[in-house]
Amino acid sequence: MDHGVQAIFAAIGSFIVVTLLLAAAILFCQHRKSTKSRTRRNNQIRARPLRNPNPSSSLSIVDASWSWDPKLKISMEELSRATENFSPRLIVGDGSFGLVYKARLSTGAVVAVKKLSPDAFQGFREFAAEMETLSKLGHRNIVKILGYWASGPERLLVYEFIEKGNLDQWLHGHSSNDDVFRCFPLTWVHRVNIMRGVAHGLCYLHGLDKPIIHRDIKASNVLLDSEFQAHIADFGLARRIDTSHSHVSTQFAGTIGYMPPEYRDGVLVANKKVDVYSFGVLMMETASGHRPNLAVRFDGVDIGLVQWARKMKEQGAEMKMVDEKISRDEEGLREESVKEYIRIACMCAGELQKERPQMVEVVKLLESMPHFDYQNDVNKIAT
Rank of each mutant, 00 (worst) to 15 (best):
G300I: 06
M359Q: 02
I303H: 02
T133F: 02
V306P: 01
F279A: 04
K33M: 09
D299S: 12
T133C: 14
K73W: 06
F161K: 09
V192M: 04
L208K: 07
V92M: 12
D168G: 15
P53G: 06
F124M: 05
E262Q: 07
W170H: 15
R240G: 02
I256F: 10
F124R: 12
I45S: 03
P55D: 00
D216F: 15
F235R: 12
F228M: 08
V158C: 13
E355Q: 08
S288H: 08
F124K: 14
E84I: 08
R81Y: 14
D69H: 09
M359S: 04
K115W: 09
V189T: 13
Y263E: 10
G4F: 13
S151M: 03
T19L: 10
G236D: 00
I342Q: 03
S87Y: 02
G350M: 01
L99W: 00
S175C: 10
V338C: 14
A23D: 11
N141L: 04
S67N: 00
G300C: 15
N85M: 05
N193I: 07
R239P: 15
I162N: 07
Y204E: 03
D299L: 06
Y159C: 14
E336M: 03
V276T: 15
D178Y: 05
P357Q: 08
H247E: 07
L72V: 01
Q229A: 05
G350E: 05
Y263V: 00
R297G: 13
S87V: 02
A129F: 01
N166M: 07
R239F: 14
S87H: 02
S176G: 06
S327P: 03
Y258G: 11
G13V: 00
V338D: 07
M321T: 02
N193K: 08
S106C: 10
L146N: 09
D329C: 11
H214E: 05
S176N: 04
V360I: 12
A150G: 09
F121S: 05
E126L: 00
E285A: 13
L137Y: 11
G257H: 14
S337T: 10
G173C: 11
G152L: 04
K380F: 08
T39V: 09
Y101A: 05
W308K: 13
V192W: 02
R48T: 08
R264W: 08
Q251P: 01
K33Q: 11
L224N: 13
K114F: 06
E355C: 12
S220N: 15
I217W: 13
F228E: 04
T255R: 10
A11R: 01
E355K: 09
A349Q: 12
G350Y: 15
L72K: 02
V301C: 04
S337M: 14
E163Y: 00
R40A: 14
R215N: 02
N52W: 10
S60K: 06
R343Q: 02
F235S: 09
C183L: 07
L99K: 00
A120H: 00
K33W: 07
F372A: 12
S67W: 00
G147R: 01
M76H: 05
V113D: 00
P292L: 03
C348F: 13
R264G: 10
P211K: 12
V180K: 07
A103L: 00
L366T: 03
C29E: 15
E318T: 15
